[in-house]
């Protein structure tokens, strides 16, 4: 179980351009951090770097397990974190349930846990529809369902609530609060405030 993320002196660049440098950020069990910054400041890149998809220019990203033991980065990324980005990775020609079940099993959940997530996010009516027939908000809810269906401690969220309506934003706030209360961590790039108490970190200021 991952208990902490330690980012030290992180610099990221895209092409020739340096996005930010010398970023320090500690995330402990139960912490939520909201990343703020103008468009193109590097919020998404930071999330992708934590997920191991981008190579940092300088600095380190470390993961700790219980009692401060070092967690191998590869293990942490394969088993202990979710990245929910702009692109949901849902195949438009398959049904919502097929895709949700695949994403759940791929990240280590089971069919039963996928059913439970469907209940919680009220996706029942959407399951038989092809993904192409879903609205942006509905697609987002389907892709967020795997956060519940396969429990992992670190959630990296990129504008998670942008397409959601008010009622579902509130419901998602409750899900975030529950995740944090259970010892989880949330690192989210946002423009609107997170619906849970969160530390604000300015990226690329």
């Amino acid at each position: 179980m991952m208990r902490a993320v330690r980012i030290k002196g992180l610099s990221l660049s895209r092409g020739e351009r340096t996005l930010f440098s010398g970023l320090d950020l500690d995330l402990e069990s139960g912490d939520a951090v909201a990343l703020l910054g103008r468009n193109g400041a590097g919020k998404t890149s930071l999330l992708r770097a934590v997920a191991g998809l981008l190579r940092p220019q300088a600095g380190t990203i470390g993961f700790e397990g219980s009692e401060g033991r070092i967690l191998e980065a590869e293990v942490a990324r394969a088993d202990h974190l979710h990245l929910a980005g702009h692109h949901d990775g849902l195949k438009t020609a398959r049904t919502a349930w097929e895709e949700l079940l695949f994403q759940t099993r791929w990240t280590g959940g089971s069919e039963a846990s996928a059913r439970a997530a469907v209940e919680r996010l009220e996706l029942g009516r959407l399951l038989d529809l092809e993904v192409r027939r879903l609205s942006a908000g509905q697609r987002r809810r389907v892709s967020l369902a795997r956060l519940l269906a396969s429990p992992r401690p670190l959630w990296l969220l990129d504008e998670p609530m942008a397409p959601l309506d008010a009622a579902h934003r509130a419901a998602f706030g409750a899900i975030l609060a529950q995740h944090l209360a259970g010892g989880g961590m949330v690192l989210a790039a946002v423009h609107d405030p997170l619906p849970v108490p969160a530390r604000l970190v300015e990226v690329g200021a």
Binding site: G52, D88, G89, T107
Partner: peptide, 16 residues
Amino acid sequence: ERDFEDGALDLLALGP
């Protein structure tokens, strides 16, 4: 290409 464009490749890269 499809997985790259729709973000599924991110998910596949973070799997078991």
